[in-house]
Simulated scan of single mutants.
Amino acid sequence: MPYSKYDSLSIAIDNRVATVTLNRPDTLNAVDGTLHHELATIFWELGDDPAVSVIVLTGAGRAFCAGGDLKWVKGSIETPLPFTLMMREGKKIVMGILECPKPIICRLNGDAIGFGATVALLSDIIIAVDTARIADPHVRIGLVAGDGGALIWPQLIGFAKAKEFLLTGNSIDAKEAARIGLINYAVSEDELDATVGRFVKQIANGSQSAIRYTKQAVNIPLRQLVASVLDCSLACEGLTTFQNGDLREGLDAFMNGRKPNYSAS
Protein backbone atom coordinates (compact mmCIF):
# COMPACT_ATOMS: atom_id res chain seq x y z
CA MET A 1 0.00 0.00 0.00
CA PRO A 2 1.36 3.47 -0.89
CA TYR A 3 1.77 5.26 2.45
CA SER A 4 4.25 7.83 1.17
CA LYS A 5 1.33 10.17 0.40
CA TYR A 6 0.93 10.92 4.11
CA ASP A 7 2.53 14.16 5.29
CA SER A 8 1.58 14.44 8.97
CA LEU A 9 1.63 10.71 9.68
CA SER A 10 4.68 8.50 9.49
CA ILE A 11 3.87 4.86 8.66
CA ALA A 12 6.39 2.05 8.99
CA ILE A 13 5.58 -1.63 8.45
CA ASP A 14 7.89 -4.32 9.76
CA ASN A 15 7.15 -7.99 10.32
CA ARG A 16 3.39 -7.45 10.01
CA VAL A 17 3.38 -4.59 12.52
CA ALA A 18 2.38 -1.12 11.28
CA THR A 19 3.64 1.75 13.41
CA VAL A 20 1.62 4.91 12.83
CA THR A 21 3.28 8.02 14.27
CA LEU A 22 1.58 11.38 14.59
CA ASN A 23 4.41 13.40 13.12
CA ARG A 24 4.05 17.09 13.96
CA PRO A 25 6.43 17.22 16.93
CA ASP A 26 6.99 20.98 16.68
CA THR A 27 3.30 21.47 17.54
CA LEU A 28 3.13 18.56 20.02
CA ASN A 29 1.33 16.68 17.23
CA ALA A 30 -1.65 19.03 17.32
CA VAL A 31 -4.31 18.14 14.77
CA ASP A 32 -4.64 20.52 11.83
CA GLY A 33 -6.63 20.05 8.63
CA THR A 34 -4.02 17.80 7.02
CA LEU A 35 -3.63 15.49 10.01
CA HIS A 36 -7.41 15.37 10.51
CA HIS A 37 -7.87 14.26 6.91
CA GLU A 38 -5.08 11.69 7.14
CA LEU A 39 -6.44 10.19 10.34
CA ALA A 40 -9.75 9.80 8.52
CA THR A 41 -8.16 7.47 5.95
CA ILE A 42 -5.20 5.64 7.53
CA PHE A 43 -7.08 3.09 9.64
CA TRP A 44 -9.30 2.10 6.72
CA GLU A 45 -6.23 1.56 4.53
CA LEU A 46 -4.33 -0.42 7.14
CA GLY A 47 -7.42 -2.50 7.81
CA ASP A 48 -7.36 -3.61 4.18
CA ASP A 49 -3.58 -4.16 4.01
CA PRO A 50 -2.78 -7.89 4.01
CA ALA A 51 0.77 -7.14 5.16
CA VAL A 52 -0.48 -5.80 8.52
CA SER A 53 -1.66 -7.76 11.56
CA VAL A 54 -1.21 -5.23 14.39
CA ILE A 55 -1.12 -1.43 14.49
CA VAL A 56 0.90 0.59 17.01
CA LEU A 57 -0.25 4.20 17.30
CA THR A 58 2.12 6.74 18.86
CA GLY A 59 3.40 10.31 18.66
CA ALA A 60 6.69 11.88 17.65
CA GLY A 61 8.59 13.88 20.24
CA ARG A 62 7.51 14.46 23.82
CA ALA A 63 3.71 14.37 23.39
CA PHE A 64 1.21 11.97 21.92
CA CYS A 65 -1.17 14.69 20.74
CA ALA A 66 -1.97 18.16 22.09
CA GLY A 67 -5.47 18.12 20.58
CA GLY A 68 -6.71 20.46 17.90
CA ASP A 69 -4.25 22.97 16.48
CA LEU A 70 -5.72 26.22 17.79
CA LYS A 71 -4.61 28.15 14.70
CA TRP A 72 -6.60 25.67 12.60
CA VAL A 73 -9.59 25.94 14.94
CA LYS A 74 -9.45 29.73 14.79
CA GLY A 75 -9.19 29.60 11.02
CA SER A 76 -12.28 27.39 10.86
CA ILE A 77 -14.24 30.19 12.53
CA GLU A 78 -12.92 32.94 10.29
CA THR A 79 -13.18 30.92 7.08
CA PRO A 80 -15.65 28.14 7.82
CA LEU A 81 -15.36 24.89 5.93
CA PRO A 82 -18.63 23.11 5.15
CA PHE A 83 -19.52 21.67 8.54
CA THR A 84 -20.72 18.45 6.95
CA LEU A 85 -17.18 17.85 5.63
CA MET A 86 -15.60 18.22 9.07
CA MET A 87 -18.33 16.10 10.62
CA ARG A 88 -17.83 13.35 8.02
CA GLU A 89 -14.09 13.31 8.61
CA GLY A 90 -14.52 13.21 12.38
CA LYS A 91 -16.90 10.30 12.09
CA LYS A 92 -14.56 8.49 9.69
CA ILE A 93 -11.72 8.77 12.22
CA VAL A 94 -13.79 7.29 15.04
CA MET A 95 -15.29 4.57 12.87
CA GLY A 96 -11.92 3.86 11.25
CA ILE A 97 -10.51 2.93 14.65
CA LEU A 98 -13.57 0.97 15.76
CA GLU A 99 -14.11 -0.82 12.43
CA CYS A 100 -10.46 -1.59 11.73
CA PRO A 101 -10.19 -5.39 12.06
CA LYS A 102 -6.55 -5.16 13.13
CA PRO A 103 -5.97 -4.51 16.87
CA ILE A 104 -4.68 -1.01 17.59
CA ILE A 105 -2.25 -0.64 20.48
CA CYS A 106 -1.75 2.95 21.61
CA ARG A 107 1.80 3.65 22.72
CA LEU A 108 1.00 6.78 24.69
CA ASN A 109 4.42 8.40 24.77
CA GLY A 110 3.26 11.66 26.34
CA ASP A 111 0.27 13.90 26.97
CA ALA A 112 -2.98 13.14 25.14
CA ILE A 113 -5.28 16.17 25.12
CA GLY A 114 -8.70 16.80 23.58
CA PHE A 115 -9.10 14.97 20.30
CA GLY A 116 -5.73 13.35 20.99
CA ALA A 117 -7.26 11.76 24.09
CA THR A 118 -10.23 10.56 22.05
CA VAL A 119 -8.01 8.84 19.47
CA ALA A 120 -5.94 7.20 22.21
CA LEU A 121 -8.91 6.03 24.25
CA LEU A 122 -10.65 4.51 21.24
CA SER A 123 -7.66 2.22 20.72
CA ASP A 124 -7.91 -1.42 21.78
CA ILE A 125 -5.03 -1.49 24.28
CA ILE A 126 -3.55 1.70 25.76
CA ILE A 127 -0.09 1.66 27.34
CA ALA A 128 1.12 5.01 28.61
CA VAL A 129 4.35 6.38 29.96
CA ASP A 130 3.63 7.17 33.59
CA THR A 131 4.42 10.87 33.19
CA ALA A 132 1.65 11.37 30.62
CA ARG A 133 -1.51 13.35 31.29
CA ILE A 134 -4.88 12.75 29.66
CA ALA A 135 -7.55 15.44 29.38
CA ASP A 136 -10.46 16.60 27.26
CA PRO A 137 -10.51 20.36 27.90
CA HIS A 138 -12.90 21.32 25.09
CA VAL A 139 -15.16 23.22 27.50
CA ARG A 140 -12.25 25.38 28.67
CA ILE A 141 -12.11 27.08 25.27
CA GLY A 142 -15.89 27.19 24.80
CA LEU A 143 -16.35 23.99 22.78
CA VAL A 144 -18.49 20.89 23.27
CA ALA A 145 -16.51 17.69 23.83
CA GLY A 146 -18.18 16.41 20.70
CA ASP A 147 -15.49 14.73 18.63
CA GLY A 148 -15.66 11.44 20.53
CA GLY A 149 -15.04 12.36 24.16
CA ALA A 150 -18.73 12.18 25.04
CA LEU A 151 -18.81 8.72 23.47
CA ILE A 152 -15.75 6.94 24.87
CA TRP A 153 -15.05 8.38 28.34
CA PRO A 154 -18.34 7.17 29.93
CA GLN A 155 -17.85 3.69 28.46
CA LEU A 156 -14.44 3.35 30.08
CA ILE A 157 -14.94 4.89 33.52
CA GLY A 158 -18.69 5.37 33.97
CA PHE A 159 -20.83 8.47 33.66
CA ALA A 160 -20.06 10.10 37.01
CA LYS A 161 -16.28 10.14 36.55
CA ALA A 162 -16.55 10.90 32.83
CA LYS A 163 -18.72 13.96 33.49
CA GLU A 164 -16.27 15.12 36.15
CA PHE A 165 -13.50 15.29 33.56
CA LEU A 166 -15.55 16.37 30.54
CA LEU A 167 -17.43 19.18 32.30
CA THR A 168 -14.30 20.62 33.94
CA GLY A 169 -11.61 19.80 31.40
CA ASN A 170 -9.39 18.64 34.26
CA SER A 171 -6.52 16.29 33.46
CA ILE A 172 -5.76 12.87 34.92
CA ASP A 173 -2.28 11.43 35.21
CA ALA A 174 -1.48 8.10 33.61
CA LYS A 175 -1.11 6.18 36.88
CA GLU A 176 -4.54 7.24 38.08
CA ALA A 177 -5.97 6.65 34.61
CA ALA A 178 -4.73 3.06 34.74
CA ARG A 179 -6.07 2.61 38.25
CA ILE A 180 -9.62 3.61 37.31
CA GLY A 181 -9.60 1.75 33.98
CA LEU A 182 -9.36 4.66 31.56
CA ILE A 183 -6.21 3.05 30.10
CA ASN A 184 -4.59 -0.36 30.51
CA TYR A 185 -1.12 0.36 31.89
CA ALA A 186 1.08 3.23 33.05
CA VAL A 187 4.77 2.28 32.95
CA SER A 188 8.10 4.03 33.18
CA GLU A 189 9.70 5.40 30.04
CA ASP A 190 12.28 2.60 30.20
CA GLU A 191 9.50 -0.01 30.23
CA LEU A 192 7.25 1.51 27.57
CA ASP A 193 8.64 -0.16 24.45
CA ALA A 194 9.07 -3.54 26.12
CA THR A 195 5.50 -3.51 27.42
CA VAL A 196 4.09 -2.49 24.05
CA GLY A 197 6.30 -5.07 22.34
CA ARG A 198 5.03 -7.85 24.56
CA PHE A 199 1.44 -7.26 23.51
CA VAL A 200 2.40 -6.72 19.86
CA LYS A 201 4.23 -10.05 19.76
CA GLN A 202 1.43 -11.98 21.45
CA ILE A 203 -1.25 -10.57 19.16
CA ALA A 204 0.83 -10.85 15.98
CA ASN A 205 1.53 -14.51 16.73
CA GLY A 206 -2.06 -15.34 17.63
CA SER A 207 -4.99 -16.52 15.54
CA GLN A 208 -5.70 -13.50 13.39
CA SER A 209 -9.24 -14.50 12.48
CA ALA A 210 -10.16 -15.16 16.11
CA ILE A 211 -8.60 -11.92 17.32
CA ARG A 212 -10.16 -9.79 14.58
CA TYR A 213 -13.65 -11.22 14.96
CA THR A 214 -13.39 -10.83 18.73
CA LYS A 215 -12.54 -7.14 18.32
CA GLN A 216 -15.47 -6.71 15.97
CA ALA A 217 -17.83 -8.41 18.44
CA VAL A 218 -16.62 -6.43 21.45
CA ASN A 219 -16.90 -3.14 19.54
CA ILE A 220 -20.52 -3.67 18.47
CA PRO A 221 -21.93 -1.50 21.31
CA LEU A 222 -19.39 1.25 20.57
CA ARG A 223 -20.24 1.22 16.87
CA GLN A 224 -23.92 1.46 17.75
CA LEU A 225 -23.20 4.44 20.01
CA VAL A 226 -21.67 6.30 17.08
CA ALA A 227 -25.14 6.75 15.60
CA SER A 228 -26.82 7.65 18.88
CA VAL A 229 -24.08 9.75 20.50
CA LEU A 230 -21.39 10.84 18.04
CA ASP A 231 -23.66 12.31 15.37
CA CYS A 232 -25.41 14.47 17.96
CA SER A 233 -22.25 15.45 19.85
CA LEU A 234 -20.51 16.49 16.64
CA ALA A 235 -23.54 18.59 15.74
CA CYS A 236 -23.48 20.20 19.19
CA GLU A 237 -19.78 20.96 18.75
CA GLY A 238 -20.65 22.62 15.47
CA LEU A 239 -23.23 24.79 17.22
CA THR A 240 -20.66 26.03 19.75
CA THR A 241 -18.19 26.64 16.91
CA PHE A 242 -20.41 28.72 14.69
CA GLN A 243 -23.33 30.07 16.75
CA ASN A 244 -21.91 31.76 19.84
CA GLY A 245 -18.96 33.86 20.88
CA ASP A 246 -17.58 31.62 23.62
CA LEU A 247 -15.14 29.84 21.33
CA ARG A 248 -13.72 33.13 20.06
CA GLU A 249 -13.36 34.31 23.65
CA GLY A 250 -11.84 31.01 24.78
CA LEU A 251 -9.28 30.94 21.98
CA ASP A 252 -8.32 34.59 22.49
CA ALA A 253 -7.94 34.07 26.23
CA PHE A 254 -5.83 30.95 25.81
CA MET A 255 -3.59 32.49 23.18
CA ASN A 256 -3.06 35.61 25.28
CA GLY A 257 -2.59 33.86 28.61
CA ARG A 258 -5.62 35.38 30.35
CA LYS A 259 -8.74 34.05 32.04
CA PRO A 260 -11.74 33.79 29.67
CA ASN A 261 -14.89 35.80 30.32
CA TYR A 262 -17.74 33.65 29.05
CA SER A 263 -21.34 34.71 28.64
CA ALA A 264 -23.75 33.53 31.32
CA SER A 265 -26.31 32.19 28.84
Score class of each variant (00 low, 15 high):
V56A: 04
T84C: 03
F242K: 09
P137L: 14
W44I: 07
N261M: 06
T131L: 11
T58G: 09
G116L: 10
A145W: 03
V139L: 07
D231Y: 13
I134H: 03
P221K: 06
W72G: 07
L70V: 09
T21D: 14
D252A: 12
K91D: 10
K5A: 14
I97F: 00
G59I: 10
L98F: 02
A264P: 00
I172Y: 01
E78R: 05
T41I: 13
P2K: 11
I97T: 02
C65P: 01
H37C: 07
K161P: 12
K161D: 15
N29E: 04
S209N: 13
E189A: 15
Y185C: 13
M87T: 06
V17K: 08
N219L: 11
R107M: 02
G250M: 11
S233K: 01
L230P: 02
G33N: 01
G148L: 04
P82S: 00
E78V: 05
P137I: 13
G238N: 09
C65A: 08
I126Q: 11
G245V: 06
I203S: 10
A63L: 01
V94R: 07
T168C: 09
S10R: 15
C232S: 12
S8D: 13
G67K: 04
T34C: 07
I141K: 13
I11P: 03
L151Q: 05
Q202L: 14
V119L: 06
L225F: 11
G59C: 10
G116E: 09
I211E: 02
N109T: 12
G61P: 02
T21Y: 11
G96Y: 11
E78C: 00
L98E: 03
I152V: 14
S263V: 12
L234H: 08
L156R: 07
P80W: 01
G110L: 03
L151T: 04
A12S: 14
L108D: 08
K74I: 07
V229K: 08
A40L: 00
G181E: 06
N261H: 10
T41F: 04
V20Q: 08
T214H: 14
A40Y: 01
A177L: 05
G169L: 00
K163Y: 08
V20D: 08
N256W: 13
L230K: 03
N184A: 13
S123A: 12
K102H: 01
I141S: 12
G67Q: 07
L192N: 08
G142I: 05
T21P: 13
T84K: 06
P2V: 07
Q224P: 01
L166D: 08
S209T: 15
I93R: 13
I97V: 11
R24K: 15
G158Q: 04
T131E: 14
L182P: 12
M1G: 06
K201I: 07
P82M: 00
T195L: 11
Q155T: 00
F254W: 11
V218K: 09
D147K: 08
K71G: 10
A253D: 11
V129S: 10
D32Q: 02
T131N: 14
E78K: 03
Y185L: 15
Q243M: 10
S53M: 09
T214N: 14
G250S: 13
D7A: 12
N219A: 12
D173M: 06
D69W: 02
P82K: 00
P2S: 14
A112F: 02
I93E: 15
F165Y: 15
L98Q: 02
A235G: 09
R88C: 03
V94Q: 04
N219P: 03
L39Q: 02
V200M: 12
V139Y: 07
V52W: 00
L151K: 06
A128Y: 06
D26Q: 09
